[in-house]
Simulated assay, not measured.
Amino acid sequence: MDGTVRRACAAGLAIGALIAALTACTGEPGARSAPGESGTPRARACAKGTFTWSPVTTRDRLTGVSRPERLDEGGGALRNPVRRVHTPVPSVRADGPAPLAAEVLFSLGKETGEIDSDAPTLAQAGGDTWAFTDPGQRAPALGEGRVTPRTPGAYYQYAGVREVSADFRHTCPDGRTVSGRARTWTVDIAGASGCGERPDTALAREAARHACGPAGSRATRP
């Protein structure tokens, strides 16, 4: 059986307001830091700075895998739970005063094409919000989108996300700059494959190394 993969874009419009009153400066009352940022107040960043980004890196990251289960002739539904091996967390880090994490992610989303907006900042986006810009976005649930193989064999399920990361530089009109790095994820991936076949994606092969062993399994061979 060929491995089966389902992908669902996670960067669409979010329901409800992301932040009640977005500002373009850090240090505002109630401002939230992204995971990994300090919760202490910081100096303000300028309101009309510009972002430049290094080449964006994307990679599929395994988030969960099940133990293999054997199906008899005719196949059937896979029932073993998908257990988490990695929890993706949006992250924005900077070496000095920077805009809110949501603003940084908004700029990254425009850079990657995940966000289609002419607004220069998220605060000026007319109330639109995107899951991509949410620094508190939760990892997708595991075990959704189960598949039903139709042939006998030992099968495993797996889940993953497509992580996006890049370095940025934020430059103010007066020449002040701050550098940092942002990371988030854009795609929820779910799939299944057999331990008796070599998967056709790097993500499924990584899952096979967790699920299928021993090293002689066809699914784990280079």
Rank of each mutant, 00 (worst) to 15 (best):
Thr151Ile: 12
Arg209Val: 05
Phe168Arg: 02
Cys25His: 12
Gly175Asp: 12
Glu206Trp: 00
Ser165Cys: 06
Leu62Gln: 00
Ser117Trp: 07
Ser165Leu: 12
Gly27Asp: 05
Cys9Lys: 15
Gly109Phe: 05
Pro99Glu: 03
Ala17Phe: 14
Pro199His: 01
Arg83Leu: 14
Ala131Gln: 05
Arg61Gln: 08
Val56Ala: 05
Pro152Thr: 09
Ile115His: 02
Arg93Tyr: 12
Ile189Ser: 00
Thr220Tyr: 01
Leu100Trp: 04
Arg198Lys: 09
Phe106Pro: 04
Arg198Glu: 11
Ala101Ile: 10
Met1Phe: 12
Pro222Tyr: 07
Arg79Cys: 06
Gly145Ile: 02
Thr148Ala: 13
Ala202Pro: 05
Gly16Pro: 08
Ala20Trp: 11
Phe168Gly: 02
Arg70Glu: 10
Thr184Asp: 02
Gly74Gln: 13
Thr151Val: 15
Gly109Val: 13
Glu28Tyr: 10
Gly216Ser: 13
Leu108Gly: 04
Arg146Asp: 07
Pro120Lys: 06
Asp188Ala: 12
Ala34Ile: 10
Gly74Arg: 13
Pro41Trp: 07
Ala17Asp: 08
Thr121Met: 13
Pro90Ser: 03
Leu22Thr: 10
Gly196Glu: 11
Ala31Lys: 10
Pro55Trp: 03
Gly191Thr: 06
Pro81Arg: 01
Phe106Glu: 00
Pro214Met: 11
Gly213Lys: 13
Pro29Trp: 04
Arg79Ile: 10
Gly180Ala: 07
Phe132Asp: 01
Arg181Phe: 14
Glu73Met: 14
Gly74Pro: 03
Arg198Thr: 14
Pro99Tyr: 02
Thr133Gln: 02
Val147Ile: 10
Leu18Ser: 07
Ala47Leu: 13
Leu142Glu: 00
Thr171Tyr: 03
Asp200Ala: 11
Ala101Lys: 01
His170Phe: 15
Thr220Ile: 12
Leu105Gln: 01
Arg209Pro: 03
Arg221Pro: 07
Val178Tyr: 00
Thr4Pro: 06
Ala123Arg: 09
Gly127Phe: 04
Gln137Arg: 14
Ala211Pro: 04
Gln157Gly: 06
Asp116Ser: 15
Gly145Met: 03
Ala202Arg: 14
Arg221Asn: 07
Thr26Gln: 14
Ala20Arg: 10
Trp185Pro: 01
Lys48Trp: 14
Ala77Tyr: 09
Ala34Met: 05
His210Thr: 01
